[in-house]
Amino acid sequence: MKQQTEPQRKLVLPGDVVAKGNYTINPKSVMYLYKIDDTIYAAVVGLVEINDNVVTLIPLEGTYIPRPGDIVIGLVENFVITHWQVDINAPYIGILHVSNLLGRPYNPAKDNLKEYLDIGDYIVARIDSFDRTKDPILDVQGKGLGRITEGKIVEIKPSRVPRVIGKKKSMLNVIKGDTGCDIVVGANGRIWIKCPNKDLEDIVTLAIKLIEREAFTSGLTEKVRVLIATEKHERGLI
């Protein structure tokens, strides 16, 4: 991991003073830092980066909190007359409006919601909007979004998602390249794998579980490479 961790990143614990003086908090990190007078404190365990007097904190643990623009993988839990209720592995239920999925006005008398999405279906969606007063609204209009019809879903801790992706997608590209599988990583800790065969699917699952388990060890990319190679060899794929 040494080549991935930048030297100026520092581990901080809740209550630690991160910066004092004329500093501002990165809008992405408002949940993880707080300010009293001119002192910025860390609120969670994380890695701190200071660039141009802007403080950014990358949390190492925590549940997924929706942010507009995120790609998530949701599980349809229920539907009511105007929308589906989707579990997005967050403290809030995702809402997917029928008109958004159909892309046209919707007539409750004619359209049967079950024909489009049923309970238990997985979907790839984008968080369209979310704030503290309203539940997150999902959007499935776009490339690669919509119902999942094949493959497998693997769940990991949401805080380990950046590790699975790696710096500039390095880790993801290693897994994709070495196995030939297509992988969609949801920001909420659900990962969709599409593989040519069952053996490769299992190997990718093992690799992802390895990353989740050993997220804080160094040389993780190499470990994943070795794991994929040995597993492929054992299964007679090479």
Binding site: L13, P14, G15, Y34, A43, V44, V45, P59, E61, S159
Partner: peptide, 11 residues
């Protein structure tokens, strides 16, 4: 709480 990643003012 720190292990769960819940934001706190301090330990």
């Amino acid at each position: 709480l720190a292990d769960a990643g819940i934001p706190m003012r301090g330990l």
